[in-house]
Amino acid sequence: MIAFVVRRLFQAVIVMFVISLLSFSIQDNLGDPLRELVGQSVSEEERQALRDELGLNDPFLTQYLRFVGNALEGDLGTSYFFKEPALDVILNKLPATLELVFGATLIIILLSVPLGVYSAINPRSWFSKTVMGMSIVGISIPVFLTAIMAIYLFSVELNWLPSYGRGETVPVFGSWETGFLTKDGLLHLLLPCASLASIMLPLFIRLIRSEMMEVLESEYVKYAWAKGLSPLRIWFLHALKNTMLPVITVGGVQIGTMVAYTILTETVFQWPGMGFLFLEAVNRVDTPLIVAYLIVVGAIFVITNTLVDLIYGLVNPTVKLAGKKS
């Protein structure tokens, strides 16, 4: 167990090193940050002077080594736009994104499990067919469109829900402000979370349904029926547990996709999270912020995948963790 975590930590460091090298080497192709820092009529000379001041004219290796040196001391550079350490800017925006992802995950779990299980048990009912039909539609509509349509329906036409932002938030601890504890905050969460969930939800319903149908055909379930166990016990205790194994695997991989989709969702809803921040940073060629974001997201990937592997072991004790002596 400990060996496993240590090995993963080591991998994480390598991953982040590679990410930093990659993002650092593409930054020249992202555009000229000076253009975003100064007005259009500023002379080329002035811009060169600023470039020198920022150290952008140094050779690549010098710049990169300087970056690594600072990074080892916990300094990932200063955002050109926010004028604050890039890491601080991102960590400030992290809670908003995590709450969005958490809300969406909650919706996915609460809906996909009952819907998936129901349509596996009653594959021929009209309700199952409707769910399956809807999931095809859901999976085919881009999140951008879902979000815009939701805004027009629920905010403009019906006027039930707010159209943008996080609404009222209350501090929990440190700089973490949550929208989950106020009515206004919850109302603001609803549309963005539902939009973000709309991409994953159909996938999980279908996944749970097909896995569940397979498990229901297996020998041990037939045996349980023969034993005369109650249907609820068979479906939700025996069958569902084995259904969840592949779901967790896919879920772990999909967290990454989810982070990618927060960029779109946050942009549409003007959600002050780090996905929106990233898109803006790319537009503004705020390279320190871009590099820092990629490293933080890299870290999130490694952490969630490690957690998934650990949970996997808990759900199915026969699974061996890589690195664990057998």
């Binding site: 805004i151 027009y152 403009v156 159209s163």
Partner: peptide, 11 residues
């Protein structure tokens, strides 16, 4: 589109 929606919805 969000900006326009925010105006139309009165936000």
């Amino acid at each position: 589109p969000t900006r326009v929606a925010a105006l139309l919805s009165g936000d």
